[in-house]
Computed example of a mutant assay.
Amino acid sequence: MRRQRALVRLAVGVVCALALTSCSSGSSGSSGSTASTASTDTRTTTPAGKPADGKPAGGKKPASAADPVRVSIPAIGVDSALMPLGLNADRTVEVPPPDKGMTAGWYTGGAIPGQKGAAVVIGHNETRNGPGVFWNLKKLTKGSKITIRDERGGTRVFTVTGTETVKKNAFPTQRVYGPTNGPELRLVTCDGAYDDQGHTVDNLIVYAKP
Score class of each variant (00 low, 15 high):
68 P>A: 01
109 G>Q: 04
67 D>Q: 06
120 V>M: 01
119 A>D: 02
104 A>D: 00
46 T>E: 03
16 C>I: 08
127 T>N: 15
95 V>H: 01
33 S>D: 08
102 M>R: 11
119 A>E: 06
36 S>V: 14
77 G>V: 05
144 S>A: 15
115 Q>I: 02
67 D>Y: 05
30 S>C: 12
96 P>M: 09
27 S>E: 13
33 S>Q: 10
106 W>V: 11
66 A>H: 15
46 T>F: 05
92 T>Y: 13
66 A>E: 08
78 V>T: 06
146 I>T: 06
79 D>K: 10
15 V>I: 13
60 K>E: 13
39 S>P: 02
122 I>R: 01
113 P>S: 14
82 L>C: 00
63 A>Y: 02
76 I>S: 12
17 A>M: 06
81 A>G: 11
113 P>I: 15
77 G>R: 05
22 S>Y: 08
48 A>H: 09
38 A>F: 04
57 A>D: 07
107 Y>S: 07
123 G>P: 12
100 K>M: 01
60 K>Q: 14
90 D>F: 08
84 P>D: 15
47 P>T: 02
148 I>C: 07
74 P>A: 14
76 I>H: 03
112 I>K: 05
58 G>Q: 09
101 G>V: 00
49 G>W: 09
138 K>S: 15
132 G>K: 02
48 A>N: 14
53 D>F: 11
92 T>K: 04
126 E>P: 07
136 N>L: 13
51 P>D: 08
99 D>E: 09
75 A>T: 09
83 M>S: 06
48 A>I: 05
44 T>V: 09
78 V>N: 02
86 G>I: 13
135 W>K: 13
141 T>I: 14
116 K>E: 03
136 N>A: 12
39 S>C: 09
115 Q>R: 09
121 V>M: 15
122 I>C: 03
28 S>W: 04
135 W>S: 10
141 T>P: 01
108 T>Q: 11
27 S>H: 13
117 G>R: 11
66 A>L: 08
62 P>K: 02
29 G>K: 04
39 S>N: 06
35 A>R: 10
121 V>E: 00
120 V>W: 08
127 T>L: 13
85 L>P: 02
99 D>H: 07
43 R>D: 09
40 T>S: 14
133 V>S: 08
63 A>E: 10
97 P>T: 01
